[in-house]
């Protein structure tokens, strides 16, 4: 990457693997469990968080020298809530269909721990450009895990991907279902998302011994 120096590039790359917000920092688990029954919802949530986190990081970073430390958490909350509401209203007026899909996520975005976590840990101490990259990187790391979970839950739970049947028709018994395969309804429930997160953490740590704490 010619545009970014090594340190800035690391801001984008680290959260994808070695410093992933979900699997390493264990932030944002709540939404990772709640909305990953479908791949589409995972993707939409990932993109929404990316937008809010990048914008919010920049705003907080610009204000970092004037925010009184006693009420900094409140300020962060106000920034993220205002941002989300403005976006939600604008979508309702100009992209109504899209806003209906996203409205479910609005509340989940405001309470997402990754957002507060990055404001607190990074944006308050760094300039806007680095804060922006950090926001994109962390949201991408979050989105990556969401997409992996969403992929397996939708495939094994409903036999579809992005709503398209990929394993055949479970009622008419075509494709895999003709061989006696059944959808695992348990995959649609939240506990399975936690188990998948656990498996991802396991795979990640066994491939990278650096991450194991002694």
């Amino acid at each position: 990457m010619a545009l970014l120096n090594k340190k800035d590039a690391a801001l984008l790359k680290d959260p994808l693997a070695d410093n992933n917000p979900i699997t390493i920092q264990v932030l944002g688990i709540c939404s990772a469990l709640a909305i990953t029954a479908e791949l589409k919802a995972s993707i939409v949530m990932g993109l929404s968080v990316m937008f809010v986190l990048a914008m919010g990081n920049v705003v907080i970073s610009l204000m970092r020298n004037i925010i009184p430390s006693k009420i900094r958490i409140i300020v962060q909350l106000v920034v993220v809530a205002a941002l989300v509401i403005v976006v939600d209203q604008a979508l309702k007026a100009f992209a109504y269909e899209l806003s209906k899909t996203l409205s479910v996520f609005v509340g989940l975005i405001i309470t997402n721990c990754i957002i507060m976590g990055r404001f607190e840990a990074f944006a308050l101490a760094n300039g806007p450009k680095r804060a922006f990259l950090d926001g994109i990187g962390n949201a991408a790391g979050y989105a990556l895990i969401l997409v992996i979970i969403g992929f397996f839950r939708e495939l094994l739970g409903s036999g579809t991907l992005l709503g398209f049947p990929v394993l055949g028709d479970p009622i008419a018994k075509t494709g895999l279902y003709a061989l006696g395969y059944e959808n695992n309804g348990f995959m649609l429930l939240s506990p399975m998302a936690l188990i998948i997160v656990g498996i991802i953490i396991w795979v990640q740590r066994s491939r990278n011994p650096k991450l194991i704490e002694h």
Binding site: A37, E38, E154, L188
Partner: peptide, 10 residues
Amino acid sequence: HKGETPGLGA
């Protein structure tokens, strides 16, 4: 619906 769980109640 206003806020049912995506993939389930939704």
